[in-house]
């Protein structure tokens, strides 16, 4: 499903060269739920960005569904992100000027679809995360846990095969975190969605199939 081969990532500024990732090899199979752990600045997010096609590796190969993406142009990358990937962020990143349902519709705007279908899909996704009663609210009117559920609905509305979650519970208290976690587990179990989750929290990591540990950009286990 996801295949990283000898992937390295360097960040260059005028003076310093930082190695964010160093020779990472990673394979995630279909339906797998893995977590990526490590201290701050170890390259977890960089790894997620590379898998999410938001960034390109300095060297090495990234392949999704067996297709290497290094020759893809911007338009193709965007299409792959749109159809195959869903993102969940620690800060939720909801658009505050849009209602809950409009936020969830965003990924569908970049597909050819009627407004009606889009609306139906968004409502279904909100139902899936248990927020069908809050569709007209604005993000600021919701609790953190609710906001993250909206973000999950947005990530799954386009029925992507892969969910990439960057510390989805990092900004939430433990009870809310557990709720979010159970939604993810449910998606993984019932929809066979592949999930890669970056986390600090060993309690959350325990619930996943496999844990990848990074330290200073290197895979330690």
């Amino acid at each position: 499903m996801i295949h990283l081969q000898e992937v390295s990532k360097l960040y260059r500024t005028d003076r310093v060269e930082t190695t964010a990732l160093d020779n990472i090899n990673l394979d995630v199979g279909k339906g797998e739920f893995i977590s990526v752990m490590g201290p701050s600045g170890c390259g977890k997010s960089t790894l997620l960005n590379l898998i999410g096609l938001l960034d390109e590796p300095t060297s090495g190969k990234v392949a999704l569904d067996g297709k290497a993406i290094d020759r893809y142009g911007d338009r193709d990358l965007a299409r792959v992100r749109n159809e195959r990937l869903g993102f969940i962020f620690q800060q939720f990143h909801l658009v505050s000027d849009l209602s809950v349902v409009d936020n969830v519709e965003i990924p569908l705007l970049y597909r050819k679809m009627s407004n009606k279908e889009r609306r139906r899909a968004a409502l279904a996704a909100l139902d899936r995360v248990g927020l069908s009663s809050r569709t007209r609210h604005f993000p600021t009117q919701l609790s953190g846990g609710q906001q993250q559920r909206v973000a999950i609905a947005r990530a799954i509305v386009g029925r992507p095969g892969i969910l990439l979650a960057d510390e989805p519970t990092g900004n939430l208290d433990s009870q809310m975190g557990d709720e979010i976690m159970s939604i993810l587990e449910d998606l993984n179990a019932n929809e066979k969605t592949t999930i890669v989750m970056v986390t600090h929290d060993p309690r959350m990591a325990e619930k996943t199939h496999r844990v990848v540990r990074l330290f200073d950009g290197r895979q330690v286990q």
């Binding site: 999410g52 338009r75 970049y110």
Partner: peptide, 16 residues
């Protein structure tokens, strides 16, 4: 910027 980043992440191309 973050809204735009988000749109790019969820599948908007540069042209879009």
């Amino acid at each position: 910027t973050r809204e735009i980043g988000l749109r790019r992440a969820t599948g908007a191309s540069r042209a879009e």
